[in-house]
Write a protein that binds this DNA or RNA. Structure first.
Lengths: 137, 137
DNA sequence: TATTAGCTAATAACGATTATCATTTAGGAA
DNA sequence: TTCCTAAATGATAATCGTTATTAGCTAATA
């Protein structure tokens, strides 16, 4: 996705398309490693040496609020981020602290269909957060 | 569950049944609110005014290691704890910061069966972590 | 009683995240 | 284009959940 598309994405979501926001969203969409705010900051510094870590945090918060980005919490002691594309799950290996995307439409459909028929009392389901914990071989 | 059973539980897991550990596990099993370490500490203080917050943290860590307790990470900015009884899922309401147990054997069996047939490449599944995000009505 | 290993309490330290605030910028209006 | 204003940024201090440290305590064993 090029810069113009990213700017449009931001505008559609009602956010001013600042250089910093474009840089953060661009960097996050380009990686598959689910970086922390700090890692993302270090990556962006290379092309944008004046950006502040606080700005990265605040930008991620803004992007999260409008639904362009998601925070992923695992056993590790910091928050990882994910540029939301399509619905997917995550594989997590605690010892290696490694987090990977897991695309599985069958699983997704199975769970979604389950909740089309099964309603939970006094609860309106908005989102399903599934993490598969295990070991990468 | 009475104190004797808790002591036995600890011993079976290879942990010395100290007063502090009994108090922490007891308090955690009695509540349904999935408290943080700090909340648990405040609760225990009432009956055990000399316990230290650090002890609560270390005790929770020990209990977690032997599998008597589980840490739950949600969007909120602290770790919540859960005395493990049987396999269940969690309902989470981000605005209210409210977390509840969700027991659903059909869902559990459906997902487990799915992964009996479907193997993920290069990944050995150990545990399924499912959070249902939504709104309590 | 002496020994020993493990546990606890008190508190300092750590580190990820958030708050503060002066300065700068984006984007609309003139 | 230039001006204006609300919003965003950068630098850094502060916060706060969690972890490390360590001296003293406790229980078990010989």
């Amino acid at each position: 996705m090029n810069k113009k598309d990213i700017i449009e994405k931001l505008n559609k979501s009602g956010l001013k398309a600042t250089h910093q926001r474009v840089a953060v969203l661009d960097a996050l969409m380009k990686t598959k490693t689910h970086p922390s705010a700090e890692e993302l900051y270090k990556t962006i510094l290379k092309q944008y040496p004046t950006i502040s870590l606080a700005t990265v945090y605040k930008t991620l918060e803004s992007l999260k609020e409008v639904g362009l980005v998601r925070a992923i919490k695992t056993d590790c002691d910091y928050v990882r981020y994910d540029a939301i594309t399509t619905n997917h799950f995550h594989l997590y290996h605690p010892e290696k602290n490694k987090l990977e995307d897991y695309y599985d439409n069958d699983l997704k459909n199975m769970i979604e269909n389950y909740f089309k028929n099964k309603k939970i009392d006094n609860f309106e389901l908005k989102e399903i957060n599934l993490q598969l914990i295990g070991e990468f071989k």
